[in-house]
Every structure is written in structure tokens, then in C-alpha cells.
Design a protein around this nucleic acid. Structure first.
Length: 888
DNA sequence: AGCGTCACG
DNA sequence: ACGTACGTGACGCTG
């Protein structure tokens, strides 16, 4: 065997150097929150050296344990080192994963260092072999010889400097072997061994040039003139020999691999791509795909745009309407209920033809409408809910949706779904689509580009991107075990939500404006009263001006400050209520001003000609799996205060003799908590149908069976239950209950004593988040918590509370979504006219003909309560009335 | 556009 | 010691 190129890498030293080569480590984190700076840098270095040396054999050696045989010789060896930063430690296991993907052998052995493995293997090389040693540690240059070059990194790991017999001689005037003697004389502060007092590199080299070796020097001490240095040499003789011994890299370590075992067979491209994706190394992934496009399947495929035909058409022929398509509607406005449809684009996947046309051309064509409505003609979409709503504006239904890429992308990565470009980056496809903002502009300047070619090209790239995204997103859903969540919950829900949005909810605008007139009068009176109390006119709606009046003019005590000045928030003002009559006046004023601004005046502009408000339920936004509602938000219509609750009177059924129907889950989050924590006491309380807050009060405040729970105790217990769901902290609870932190802590301690299963859950879920970087709901919805490892206390604490809360809130969200899909199916199957209108996190609002109410009274609670089976029962309260206000 | 505030679950 | 309850959206003010 000969003419091999054997590369031996000191993995431990290089990984460590790699870590410190990138300082702004918080910019190097993957979605799971793992720091990736060292892996990134190490990968870059590996790439470079593989490219540069093209080795036939390669091994990366690691130190196995903190102590080695050298510690038996000298217990202080490598002592006093700073402990490994956690940001580095968490990356350590992944170096092996990276190397496996590279197809590079790695090796470590108990009690020996990486150096010894390298030294031993290097000594086994044939004289015709070329040996390349790479390390960040200069000690290894002792291994240089006629066929071994030692490369030491410089400037982090981006450059390497060769050490050969010649260069070592040029630099030090020593042979590689004498480097060991030099170490013996100098000692090594980083490895923590001593050497001879006051002998550094300069003196050491001079002595070795004179004597050749430490042994020879001590044999010929009389050649050194009496001096302080000579005294030191004599006194430290033992150290010198020990240090030389410690510095000597073994060439006979008991390793169980040999050179033929480390033959380099090349990268496992798929595994490496997978690794890069996991680490969010998009640029490495892109390079890999470019280089190995032939070997990578789906994701490695170049999206060759020139294999597609791009056609702008002004009439529709049957040939243009394929069995399998990507469909895309372009609008400039986000609110698709009001937006103009600027263009319709679809891709015939089989023919590789992209058609674009105007809304007019498309929807005056019966052929096209029939194609949209056809279940057999399959369409890949981006946001099928939006597409269904827009289609409905043309008195057409959209059927045959094969896949919704937006929803899939959201489930995979909650944060990067703003547009198609983001998703391409997430899955590592080339970014062939420009940002909408770059093409259309933003704000008042937003418009279809003058150059129609630019516009059509943009649409062209979008549908092609979606075609390629689908298989990739499917794979990811599969590997994350989220396909069920997608298929049985989220995807069918989009259709249910579309129908809710399309129907909208009827709102009596006259009633709102009448309330608004009354409100204006009352607010005017209250303004006058406040100005009187303040002694001057000012803008009550300006926290800044209000702060000056309260805390400077009236001299009230400052309880809390904000970034910009005094806090005038309700909880602060409530504490001041007894001190000045203006406080209550302001609180009342604020409440009414809010009602007027947000609801009485805010809602009417959204009432369409059909008398309905069509909100948008955003399905792909929240971090927990809940929906959100915008333009307008119909999930925050007042209820807690009677004054605001009256606004619900304006929400009415859409037809004569119809009624509103509402059903809400009772304590769904606590029931979910009882289920996932398996806490026996909490489970039993729900099984026994107890009032959970009273039951908690009994336990926490130790109230005997024969005594009633006071409302104050129940209130406090309720607050503790809420706190538990939110990921409790004594401070938060103390603020909420206006009690001392100590008291809050006592409550919590007592709670955890009484509900040990909950305590265990809270501990375990945080631990799980730390280990995996994410938490999941019962239906495998995932939330990544990158800050769980943060060294910033605030960020870390927040992530810990999120870890506790998200599986609870998210599972509740999963459950009501399942209920919605099931309920809609039942309504369809029974051919009921009842229609879902709104979802408000734990409640559903429907409207129905009066005669269907009796059926709904059974059907709705039945479906909601049995949407899933938990270890505790789910309970639903329900009601009907002639408007939303009456559902109480 | 960011902040403070407040509406909901 | 750190300085917090979890998840949203919309308003008015301010710079």
C-alpha cells in the first residue's frame, strides 16, 4: 500500500476553535434554538480542506474524556480550564452527525487524547504515503517528518499554516522532535503543566540548539555558566522531564483502527442535505444542490424555468384546463374580501404550460368555472381558503383542492410563511420567486408593474415554485409526523372557514350608529367632568398628556413607569382610585372611548352591501395553533362589561325566523391540562363534575368538606388555575391578585403539593423543550422554542413558560378545530341549513332556522364533547337567541 | 412605525 | 439579581 493521501484531523481542537471563530453566536441558531456557529465554521473548514487536499484516507479524532493517562502522571494536567460554554456543549453531538454525513471516519478512545490517535496513525503510514495533520494546537508540529506536514489553523479556522521539517527548522532552528523538549522547558499554560521557571520560547530554543535535548542538557550542566537561570534549571529538573513526557504525543496508543479503515468513500449527499436543512444552513445546502444536482432527488432538482411555456391568453379553450394543475389568484390587497382579482394563473403540470389571464376572461368562461368546480380536476394551491373566497365572488365554487402549500408550510415552520419566497428558503429550494414587495411595491405605491412581462414572469415563477414545493412539503410533513394533523384537521378546516367567511355575520349598522350617537353625548359630558376635575382641557386619550395631569399637576403617586413616561394603564389607575375622583372618571371614559372607537365606529365600514361583516380567520399565524381574526377582529367583541356587551345586540341572524346559536367549551384548557399531566386529583375533580375553581380552593386553602368555599377563595383559586395554564410565576400571580410575592409563592407551593402531577408535567415539558428544542400538542402540532437555551434570563424564562402553556393552548385549539370539521360534515350530511359563523377559541357561533334549534341543541354539544376522547370529560354549554347578546 | 392601552379567549 | 403571567388585533397618539 502506498501513495495514499492520509488526512488526520484533530476534531476536538478544531471544533473548539470553530466555536470561537464566530463571535456573534446568537445569529447562528437553527429553528430548534440550537446554536450552530461551531458546526457552521467546522463545516466550512472541512469543505475547504477536502477541496484543497483531496485525501484518499481521512480520520477525525476526538478527545474522549476530560481525564486521560496524562492525569495519572500529573493530576493538574489540563486543570483550571474554564468550563465549556453551554452554547458549545450543545453542539458537540452534532459533529459526529456531520462527519457521518460526510462519510468521514471519526474515532476516540478512553484515556487518550485526539493527538495520540493522530500520532499513532501517522506512525503507521507507509513511507510513500503523504500524511496531512490538521489541528488548532501547535503541539502537534512534533509529528512533522519527511512525509508528514502539520497544518495549524490561523484566524479562527479560515486559514491553515503548514509546518514541515524545513519550515520548523527555519522558524525555530529545531527538529520536530525537539519541539517536545521545547515544551518540556517552557511548560504549557493552557494544558497547565509547569516547565522550568522563567524559561520561555527564546531561551528554550537557545538551550536546545546548544544541547540538542533536555537529557543531554542535564548530563552537561557544567557547560552552563552559574546564573539564576542555571539555578532554575537545576531546581526544576523534575518538572522539565515530566513536562517533556506530558508533551510527547504517543505513537503507540492502543487504537483499534488502522489506515485501511479510514479510506474516504465520499459524502452521503442525502444525509448531508438533511443535516444542512436541520441546521438551517441554507447556503451550504444550495451549494450542495448545485454541485450534486444529479444525485439529489426532489429538493436537489433545479427548477429549470425554460422547460415551461409561458402563455398569456384572452380566451379559454378546453385544452388549457388540465387534470392536474397549480392554481394561483393574484390580488394586491391583503383583504381578499374586498380585493380586485388582478390575474388568474395556472400551471398544467403534465404539459408544463403556464397560463395567465384576466379575471374577466376567466370568469366569463363557463368552461373555466366548470373546471374550478370540478372535483376531478386537481389543483395545488397557496391558501385554498383565500382562493375559495375569491372564487365565490364570481358565483362559482372551488373544488378539487389537492394540496394547500400555505397550510403545510405553516405547520412545518410557524414563522416563515409570509410569502412563497420564505417557504422556498425553508425547504431549501432555489429562490426563483421575487418578493411581492419588490415586484408590486408597498403602501400607496403598490401597483401592478408597468411592464407586463415583469408581472407575468412573477406569476409564472409562483406557480412553478408551488409545484415544486408540494412534494417537498409533503415529505417534511411525513417526517415530522404531521401528515395526520394536516389531512384530518387543518386542510379540511380551511374549507369550513372559507364558508364561514363567505357567509359573514349580519350586523345591524343602524343599531351601531344609534348607540354611537348616545355614546358621543355621554363621552362629551364625561370629558367636561374630567376637565373640571383636572382644572384644564387636555387630550384624555393621550397617555402622555394624561400622565402630566395626574402625576405632575395633581401630584398623584407614580406606581409604574413605561419606556416613555408614566404608566396610566388601568391596573395602575385602579390603585389610585381612592386618591382622586378624576381617576374613576378617566377609567369610565377610557372604557367608553374604546367601545366607540373600536366597535361602534370601527365595525360599520366593514359591513358590505349584503349587510354582513366578513372577517378573515387567519389560519396560519399563531404560534399555538389558534386562529386569529382580522379586518375586523370578531374574536374580541366585548362581553365582560355590560356596557360593551350590548354591542352584541347588533349581531343578528341573516334571515327572518332564524336564530343565533352559541356553544362553548367549559374549562377546556384545564381539562386538557388534567389530561396531559395525568394529575389524578385534577382528573378526579372533572370526572366528578366538580366546579374546578372551588375544588382547587378547597385543596389550596384547606377548606373542609362541611364548609362552603367563599367567593374570595374561589376567585383566588381561579387566578392560580389561570396562572398554571400560563406557566406560573409568583410575580405574575402576585400582580394579578394584588398580593405579595411571598403569598403568591405560598399559593403556588401549596398548589403543587396538592396537584403533584401538574408539577411533574411542568418540569418535564421544560426538560423536553430543552432536549428537543420544541414542544408539541396532542395532535403533534409543534412549536420551536429557540430561546430555551438562552443565557438571557428573561428570554429563557419566557421560553419556559411558553413550553408549559403552548401544549395546553394548542391542544385546546386542535380540539375545537376537529369539532368544527366534524360539525360541518354533520350539517352537510343532515342537510341542515344551519351555518357556522364564528369561532372564538373555545366557542362556536352559528345561525339557523328556528326549527333547527332543537336539533342543534343535541348535535352541537354532542359533536364538541366527543371531538376527541380525553381522560376527563369535555363539557359544552349552549344557547340560542335572536342576537349574539342573548347567547348567555 | 412604535408605543401604550385595552378588547377578547 | 434578573423582571414576567399565555395567545391575539385595533385604536389613538406621537415622532
Amino acid at each position: 500500500m502506498s501513495n495514499n493521501k492520509i488526512m488526520l484531523i484533530d476534531g476536538s481542537s478544531l471544533a473548539f476553535r470553530a466555536f470561537f471563530s464566530i463571535v456573534n453566536i446568537d445569529q447562528f441558531k437553527n429553528k430548534a434554538g440550537l446554536h450552530t456557529n461551531a458546526l457552521y465554521s467546522f463545516n466550512l473548514m472541512l469543505n475547504t480542506v477536502l477541496e484543497q487536499f483531496k485525501p484518499t484516507h481521512i480520520l477525525v479524532a476526538f478527545d474522549k474524556s476530560e481525564t486521560t493517562f496524562r492525569n495519572e502522571k500529573y493530576s493538574e494536567y489540563k486543570g483550571g480550564r474554564q468550563k465549556i460554554p453551554s452554547e458549545f456543549r450543545e453542539q458537540m453531538p452534532y459533529f459526529r452527525v456531520l462527519l457521518d454525513a460526510y462519510g468521514i471516519e471519526h474515532y476516540e478512545i478512553l484515556n487518550y487524547e485526539a493527538d495520540d490517535i493522530i500520532g499513532t496513525l501517522a506512525s503507521q503510514a507507509d513511507k510513500d504515503d503523504e500524511v496531512i495533520v490538521i489541528s488548532g494546537d501547535k503541539d502537534l508540529i512534533q509529528l512533522a517528518n519527511a512525509n508528514t506536514t502539520v497544518y495549524i489553523t490561523r484566524k479562527g479556522v479560515s486559514e491553515i499554516e503548514p509546518y514541515t521539517v524545513e519550515t520548523i527548522n527555519d522558524k525555530y532552528g529545531l527538529t520536530p522532535n525537539q519541539i517536545i523538549d521545547l515544551k518540556g522547558l517552557m511548560g504549557d499554560s493552557s494544558d497547565n503543566y509547569p516547565g522550568v521557571t522563567r524559561i520561555g520560547e527564546k531561551t528554550g530554543i537557545k538551550l536546545l540548539q546548544q544541547f540538542g535535548s533536555i537529557e543531554n542538557m542535564y548530563d552537561n550542566l557544567d557547560e552552563i555558566k552559574p546564573s539564576k537561570m542555571k539555578d532554575n534549571i537545576i531546581n526544576d529538573q523534575e518538572n522539565a522531564f515530566m513536562s517533556k513526557d506530558l508533551a510527547t504525543i504517543l505513537t503507540d496508543a492502543p487504537i483499534e483502527i488502522s489506515i485501511e479503515d479510514i479510506e474516504y468513500k465520499g459524502k452521503d449527499i442525502e444525509a448531508l442535505a438533511e443535516f444542512y436543512r436541520n441546521m438551517d444552513f441554507h447556503s451550504f445546502l444550495n451549494n450542495l444542490q448545485t454541485e450534486y444536482s444529479d444525485q439529489l432527488t426532489d429538493e436537489g432538482e433545479e427548477l429549470e424555468l425554460n422547460q415551461y411555456d409561458r402563455l398569456f391568453i384572452d380566451d379559454i379553450k378546453a385544452d388549457y384546463l388540465p387534470k392536474q394543475a397549480v392554481l394561483y389568484y393574484e390580488t394586491l390587497e391583503e383583504n381578499y374580501h374586498f380585493a380586485d382579482l388582478e390575474a388568474v394563473t395556472w400551471l398544467d403540470i403534465e404539459q408544463k404550460k403556464v397560463y395567465t389571464t384576466t379575471a374577466d376572461t376567466a370568469f366569463k368562461s363557463e368552461l373555466f368555472k366548470a373546471w374550478l368546480a370540478s372535483e376531478e380536476h386537481r389543483k395545488i394551491t397557496w391558501d385554498s381558503k383565500r382562493d375559495a373566497v375569491i372564487t365565490s365572488h364570481f358565483e362559482t365554487v372551488l373544488n378539487g383542492i389537492q394540496f394547500d402549500t400555505l397550510i403545510a408550510a405553516y405547520l412545518i415552520d410557524l414563522n416563515n410563511t409570509k410569502d412563497i419566497t420564505d417557504v422556498l428558503a425553508v425547504v431549501g429550494l432555489p429562490s426563483i420567486v421575487k418578493n411581492d414587495e419588490a415586484v408590486y411595491g408597498k403602501g400607496v405605491k403598490r401597483a401592478i408593474p408597468e411592464d407586463k412581462d415583469v408581472f407575468e414572469q412573477h406569476l409564472f415563477t409562483k406557480v412553478i415554485a408551488l409545484e415544486h414545493l408540494m412534494p417537498e412539503l409533503k415529505n417534511r410533513l411525513e417526517s415530522l409526523e404531521m401528515m395526520d394533523l394536516y389531512t384530518t384537521i387543518e386542510f379540511p378546516l380551511a374549507k369550513v372557514l372559507a364558508d364561514m367567511e363567505i357567509r359573514g355575520v349580519k350586523v345591524n349598522g343602524d343599531e351601531l350608529s344609534q348607540m354611537n350617537v348616545e355614546m358621543s353625548e355621554r363621552l362629551k359630558e364625561m370629558e367636561e367632568e374630567i376637565y373640571d376635575l383636572a382644572g384644564e382641557k387636555f387630550n384624555i386619550n393621550s397617555p402622555k398628556q394624561l400622565g402630566v395631569i395626574l402625576f405632575e399637576k395633581l401630584g398623584l403617586p407614580v406606581i409604574k413607569k413605561t419606556k416613555t413616561g408614566y404608566s396610566t394603564a388601568a391596573d395602575v389607575l385602579e390603585k389610585l382610585a381612592g386618591k382622586h375622583p378624576i381617576i374613576n372618571a378617566i377609567l369610565d371614559y377610557r372604557q367608553l372611548a374604546k367601545l366607540q372607537g373600536t366597535y361602534l365606529e370601527g365595525l360599520p365600514p366593514y359591513i358590505k352591501e349584503d349587510g354582513h361583516i366578513h372577517t378573515r380567520f387567519v389560519q396560519t399565524l399563531t404560534q399555538t395553533g389558534r386562529l386569529s381574526s382580522t379586518d375586523p377582529n370578531l374574536q374580541n367583541i366585548p362581553i365582560r362589561m355590560e356596557e360593551g356587551r350590548k354591542i352584541r345586540k347588533a349581531f343578528i341572524p341573516s334571515q327572518e325566523n332564524w336564530l343565533m346559536f352559541g356553544a362553548d367549551y367549559s374549562q377546556i384548557e384545564l381539562r386538557v391540562l388534567a389530561h396531559i399531566s395525568k394529575d389524578e386529583h385534577m382528573q378526579q375533580a372533572f370526572i366528578d363534575g366538580e366546579d374546578i375553581h372551588s375544588s382547587t380552593a378547597r385543596r389550596v386553602f384547606d377548606i373542609p368538606e362541611n364548609e362552603a368555599v367563599t367567593s374570595e377563595h374561589r376567585r383566588q383559586a381561579k387566578a392560580v388555575n389561570f396562572g398554571i395554564v400560563y406557566g406560573i410565576s409568583d410575580y405574575g400571580l402576585s400582580q394579578n391578585l394584588n398580593i405579595s410575592r411571598k403569598q403568591a409563592k405560598d399559593f403556588i407551593d401549596r398548589y403543587f403539593e396538592q396537584y403533584p402531577g401538574i408539577k411533574r408535567y411542568m418540569e418535564e415539558i421544560v426538560e423536553e423543550a430543552k432536549e428537543t428544542g420544541y414542544v408539541s400538542t396532542l395532535f403533534n402540532r409543534r412549536r420551536y422554542l429557540p430561546d430555551i437555551h438562552s443565557s438571557n434570563f428573561n428570554l429563557r424564562s419566557f421560553a419556559e413558560r411558553t413550553a408549559m402553556n403552548s401544549p395546553i393552548q394548542g391542544t385546546a385549539a386542535d380540539i375545537i378545530k376537529i369539532a368544527m370539521v366534524t360539525l360541518q360534515k354533520a350539517i352537510d350530511d343532515e342537510k341542515l341549513q344551519a351555518q357556522l359563523l364564528l369561532q372564538v377559541h373555545d366557542e362556536l357561533i352559528l345561525e339557523a332556522p328556528a326549527e333547527e334549534i332543537e336539533r342543534l341543541n343535541v348535535l352541537v354539544p354532542e359533536i364538541m364533547e366527543n371531538a376527541v376522547e380525553l381522560s376527563v370529560p369535555l363539557k359544552v354549554d349552549y344557547n340560542h337567541g335572536s342576537n349574539w347578546y342573548e347567547l348567555k
